[in-house]
Simulated scan of single mutants.
Amino acid sequence: MARQTLCVLALLLAAPAVADDDLLAQGRQVFLEQAQPSCSLCHTLREAGASGAVGPDLDQLRPDAARVESAVRNGLGVMPPFAESLSDEQIRAVAAYVSSVAGQ
């Protein structure tokens, strides 16, 4: 019985990591391919192999997800807003991705 409980507990604890991995993979795809223009054209983000020089270096800035989501949704400075071209799900995914990998 104790072994079954441990197995169930392990599965429950592992489930969010799988969802997080899927979310981060989706966010990476938005960063590199789905956003038009691509985030990688303007921003440096080592994990994505991006070395843009127009926008801030995200590895140095290390923004949290809320900051990324706001910038993507509403635009910031010369960065255009993406609220009309990306879904809420895509915006949340790219925000989670950037905030998770920036500075690594």
Rank of each mutant, 00 (worst) to 15 (best):
A53P: 03
Q29N: 15
Q29C: 15
Q36V: 14
A25T: 04
T44R: 00
A48T: 05
L45W: 00
P63T: 13
L45F: 05
A48C: 11
R73A: 05
Q29G: 15
P56E: 08
F31E: 08
L41N: 12
R46Y: 09
S38C: 07
A53T: 12
Q34R: 14
R28T: 04
F31T: 14
R73L: 04
L41W: 11
T44I: 01
R62Y: 09
Q60M: 05
V68E: 00
C39I: 08
Q34G: 11
V30D: 02
V72F: 10
Q34N: 14
Q29I: 15
D64K: 09
D59V: 11
P37E: 01
L24R: 02
A48F: 04
L61T: 13
A71I: 13
Q36D: 14
A66W: 08
V68R: 01
R73P: 03
A48W: 04
A35P: 07
T44M: 00
L23I: 03
P37A: 04
V72A: 10
R62I: 10
F31C: 15
D59G: 11
A48G: 09
L45H: 04
Q34T: 15
A53M: 06
A66E: 06
V30S: 03
D57L: 02
A25K: 03
G55P: 05
E33V: 15
L23H: 07
C42P: 02
F31H: 12
L45S: 02
V54I: 12
S40G: 12
P37S: 02
H43G: 01
S40P: 02
G55R: 02
V30P: 01
E69W: 04
G55F: 05
L41V: 13
Q29L: 15
S51M: 02
G55I: 06
E47L: 01
